[in-house]
Structure formats: C-alpha cells, structure tokens
Design a protein around this nucleic acid. Structure first.
Lengths: 365, 365
DNA sequence: TTGAAAGCGCTAACAA
DNA sequence: TTGTTAGCGCTTTCAA
C-alpha cells in the first residue's frame, strides 16, 4: 500500500525489514527461518515488509553466521554425456526439494582440473560433496578430510569399502555382455574401451570382459582405448578390424563409442550384426531407436542420482546410512548382436532374448 | 617442517595463518589477494604457513566483506541437451580462466522453476547472470533490476534491443531450411516444432518456415508441437503423416526430433530422403554420422558461450560492450533431403550442395 | 514470544 | 610495506 515499487539499487537488509515491521532483526530472522517460533501477527507484519521491500536474503551473510551454506557440490567428468545428465538432474531435483542448491563442476577427465574444482567447491563452503567414480587424486580426499566434508562416491561401487558409495558393478555388467557374446558363439571378441586412466568404470569394464573370456580360456582379440566420442568409435573400429583374422564381435566402452563403431562398420560395407556384433554400455535413449537397435547395459542413472542425494542428505541430518549401496544393472539385448556367420561354437543356436517394449532382459549384478 | 599433517576438524582461519606467520591478518589477506603488495620475504612466510595449516579461504566470509562472490550464474532449460552442454562448457572455461566460478541451474522448461532458480542464484550473490533465450517471467527481470545484476541473454538475438544479448537469428535459420526444401521442389512441407510456450527459439523457427512458405504463396501442410525428445519425434511424424495428401518434407524443431522422425519413417517403411525429406536444427555430432546424414543448421554453440562470458566479464570490468551480438548460422545439407519423388516444382533439378568434410554450406544470417 | 548483543572470517580504509 | 580497526548482513545464544 505504501511504496509501489521496491527501491532499486541498494539491496535491502534484514535491518530494513525489521525497521519497517517494527520488530528486531532477530525476529525477522526467525520469521524467515523458523516461522513457527513467531506469533502469527508478527509473522504477517514481517512478510508484508519483506514483499514491500523486495527483500532477498544475503546468502553469504547467512552462510557466515549459520556456518551452513545449504549448498552441495557435485564434481562430474563432463556435461557432454547425457547419461551423467540424467544423474545430475536427479541430484538437482532431490537437493532442491530438500532446500539445497546443487553446485556443479566438471573437469573433462583432467585430474588437475578435478582437484581445482573440488577445492573451489570446498572454498565455496558446500555442506557436502558428490563425486563421480572412485579414482581421485589423493589431494581430493585430503581436502575433504581436512574440512570434514560429508561426501559420497557414485557410479562405481567402492569395493575397498573405504569410501561411502552408491553405484554399479561395472565389472559384472561387462561380464554379462561378454558372456552374452560367448553364448552366441563368438570366439574372436575385440574391445574399444574408454580411456582407463583415472576412470575405474572404463577399467572395470575391460577387466570384466577379460575375466569372462578367461573363464572360457579365451582372451581379447585386440583392445584399443579411446575417448568417449562418436569419431573415436569410428577410429576404434578401424583399428580393431585391422587385425587378422577379424573379430566377429566388438565390445564398446559405452553407447557413444558403439554408435560410432556401427557407423564405421556400415561405412566399410559390413552389416551389423550379420558380419559383426557390436555392444555398448549405458542404454541411451537413442540406443533403442537406431537400426539396428543396440545391445547394451542399462544403468538406472536417475535412481543413482536420487539415492546419492538421499545418502548425503541423511548424513547431513545425522541419520544412519549404509556405507555402500549397489544398484542393479540390466543387459538389454537388441539387434546389434547375433551369432557369428560361420560359428563353430556349440551354442550358436541360442537366440538373442527380447523382452518388453525396450527389449530388456537379464538382470545382472 | 613442523606439523606433518594439517590438523583435522576445526577449519583454519586467516588469524591462524597470521599467528603462525607472525604477521597481521591484513597482511595475510593481501598476500593471498594482492601478492605484489607484500614483500617477498613476508609472502614466503605466509605461503609456508598456509600450506602447513592446509588453509582454505572461507568463501562466504570473503564474499561478505568484499561484496563480491566471484561467482556467475547461468540458467539453462535443461542439462539433457548436448547442444546446451557445448555452450555451458564454454562458459565454464571462460569464467574459470577469469577466476570466476559458474553456478549452473536448469529448469526443464518450467517458468516457475526458472524464477525460483534465478532467485536462488541472486540470493547466492552471483556477480552476473547468463540467461538462455529472451522469453522470461517478468519477475526474473524485476529481481535482476532490483539487485542491478549484470546479465546477458543468449541463444536468441533480442530484436527488441531492450536486453543485452548474444545469439542467433533463429528465424533466418528456419527460412534457409524452408527455402532449401522449396528449391528442391517441395510444396507440401509439414513441421514438427518444439514446444513454443516460453521458447522463442522454437517460435522463431516456426515463424521462419511460415514466412518462407508465404513468400511463395504456400502454407504449412500440418504442424505439431512436441517436446525435444526422440520419442516425441516419432509421434510427431506419425501425426503429420496422417494428413492426406502426405507432406513430402518435414522440418523438425531440432535434431533430436529429426532423428526420431527419421526412425519412425523407416519403421513405417518410408525411405529418407526418397519418400520423405527431413531436416533438423543444431547439427549435433550424430547428425553427420547416421545414415542418412541429417540436413540441419549449424550453430556455433561453443563460440556463443565464450562470447557471452566475454560480455559479462567485460561488464564486470566496466569495459564497453556492444549491447547486441549476432553470430552466424550455417545450413548444412546432407543426405536426408532430396527432390520429392513426383516433383511438380520448376526447380526440382537443383542438387543439394555438399561442401567440405562436414558437408557444410550456405552461410546464413 | 521477543529483543539485545556478540560474533561468523574476511576485506579495506586508514594510519603508521 | 605492514598493522589497526571497523564493519559486511546475518544467526544465535541469553535474558527479559
């Protein structure tokens, strides 16, 4: 009823609101943070003043006084990957609902950049941290310990049990893929892996494939490491096809590499899966839409995000939480895998399973 | 040489460092922020103490005292889109290099969520804001004005000239696409647009297509609005194909919709481009890798990010900046477009241009 | 239920 | 070049 517009320029403070509502700053503070501790009449007066002045809490001042920023940091490898975007989005939703703001930092797979990003987040006073993967520079863990920041590792399951984590068993997922190919009768299986340095997900996937092969007294018919891009998938396929005799199947470190590999196979006149079986990891939406549909492993990435968020939120509320949470993964068999053309395997008659709309099957891990 | 480990738990403060280095807190503050104002010997002593104690600046305290957070906020529609990821990544790099931290918020195309996200960022004390698009709730601009936060709009070029912006001419891009199809001889052209509510990019693309058609006394042979997902692209194609006579070409609101449309066309037994031409916008990496390669419009998204960053950085440094910056877009003709089967157009003999490795051509806007 | 007052950890005059 | 000191805007005892 008084000022038609909040005054521009100089930001309003708690004291301004207090003056206008004719109460103390302490009361305004309570009205904003603990409304149930303030009488209804006073509360209303304060709220009116807040609106009239266009008051917005000064975050830094609140953080300094309360020693809480209501901010949680997440350090992820890259924003480019839609799979991480799923998880990130779930984190954001969960934290938002709990009154926390997510501070996002990415490092593009550069360990030094990850240390810097983590330092910056800690400096910004995040109340907790979500890290992706188990492989981190010791400095990261040192800073976390020095400030005693609650944290959780995600996407990978920390088998050492040293760190709280919620993630997947990437090795079991890879074994499932390899066994699927072996069951189809493939014996010459190559791999286009992601870059394994500082990336235990990529490493575990290689290890899983090797383990499955070894169990049948076989070994990889070639393995190259590539960054997670379509172009790298093409290069990778060219590389693994250069060996003689050719592999009949290629396990790719993720769906992006697999899509690149399929494109390259087609460019070289090879038909997938008739001439070559190809698999991925992640089950991106596009994996089911292309022709042929991609055989891959589905990870519940959004659930991972909400579980990870729930974990740190519980820690912040001093509630008990399991140190380790493992989420199930699922082999999804589509049309990019089939028995090899001239199969000598005993099980070449096995037909790829297809289940449900998305062709899901075989729960793993 | 003294304490082997930084003490855990209680975080170190400037005073702790000062005590250990036997200087005042003011000197430590200077050593950290303005090292050239401190004598080399003192500087060294301070640095030694900082390392020994594992001291990390308390961001909130610094922000409160200096009235600067060295933080810049960006509000984007979604993290799911790799195209925005390009821009975001470029922002992050540019701000990082300038000593600023990027605070990222997404709203999934929900206007109320965008208002909340903007409020949160302002509350966190961002020194500047980057907003995506020109269409925003009035409350967003009100908050920005009240706090006098420097800002820039991106991705869309603000034709009204009211707001600082760096972006593209989406309408011209759409006209180029439509004209390409018209030049090929298409006369029945339908559109699968993005959701146009609160999204002037989507709106401008529809307007551009309509304008190009109108210039030849034609109008759209059907238009549906869909969210930017593959599944929606499939649905959209089903919808526009339901009209009789069928359109011979479909302009899609972005590449994701276009990929969905192509998948659906193939599922219905239609060959692209023989039976149907399909176009997109954005030129995602996958657009060039699929068969057929997608005819689309390339936007320099990373450059957009660095330009937008440069804009707000210049504003923060009180340097002069142009109010409006328009970046060029490019029609990229690939294999998803061709002359219609039974062309009645006079220009049906025109062959799609193909230039360079990526098939780029025709600079627009 | 409300108010007074003491900081939270740092920066930035100003003084020396 | 360095130190002293007064806040920055808020929360949080403690007392009323």
């Amino acid at each position: 009823m008084n000022d038609p517009r909040p005054p521009q320029g100089q930001a309003m403070t708690l004291a301004d609101v207090a003056r206008r509502a004719k109460v103390s700053t302490a009361t305004v503070s309570r009205a904003l943070s603990l409304p149930q501790m303030v009488s209804p009449a006073t509360l209303r007066r304060v709220q009116t003043a807040v609106v009239a002045l266009g008051y917005v809490t000064h975050g830094a001042a609140r953080a300094l006084a309360s020693r809480r920023t209501h901010t949680i940091g997440a350090v992820i490898p890259t924003l480019d990957n839609a799979i991480f975007a799923n998880t990130t989005h779930a984190l954001q939703r969960a934290f938002d609902a709990a009154g926390y703001t997510l501070l996002l930092a990415s490092h593009e797979f550069d360990p030094a950049a990850e240390v810097r990003a983590t330092r910056t987040l800690i400096q910004r006073g995040v109340d907790a941290l979500v890290l992706l993967g188990t492989t981190h520079d010791p400095e990261v863990f040192r800073m976390i310990a020095a400030r005693q920041v609650p944290y959780v590792l995600t996407w990978a399951y920390d088998t050492s049990g040293q760190h709280p984590s919620v993630g997947f068993d990437n090795r079991a997922a890879a074994m499932a893929v390899a066994n699927h190919l072996l069951d189809l009768g493939h014996r010459r299986i190559a791999m286009i892996a992601g870059l394994t340095a500082n990336n235990e997900r990529a490493r575990e996937r290689v290890a899983g494939v090797k383990a499955a092969l070894k169990a049948r007294r076989l070994s990889l018919a070639g393995c190259v490491e590539k960054p997670f891009t379509l172009a790298a998938g093409r290069e990778g396929l060219r590389a693994v096809l250069a060996t003689a005799p050719r592999p009949t199947a290629v396990v790719c470190g993720n769906d992006v590499l697999a899509l690149g590999a399929i494109a390259q196979a087609q460019a070289q006149g090879l038909q997938v899966p008739r001439d070559l079986s190809v698999t991925g990891f992640d089950d991106m939406e596009i994996a089911s839409l292309l022709t042929p549909g991609l055989t891959t492993v589905h990870f519940p990435t959004a659930e991972l995000g909400s579980r990870a968020a729930a974990h740190v939120l519980a820690r912040l509320a001093d509630e008990p939480v399991p140190q380790q949470t493992e989420l199930p993964v699922e082999l999804v068999v589509r049309e990019s895998t089939a028995a090899p053309k001239l199969s000598q395997g005993k099980q070449s008659s096995v037909i790829p399973a297809k289940a449900g709309i998305h062709g899901r099957s075989k729960s793993v891990g």
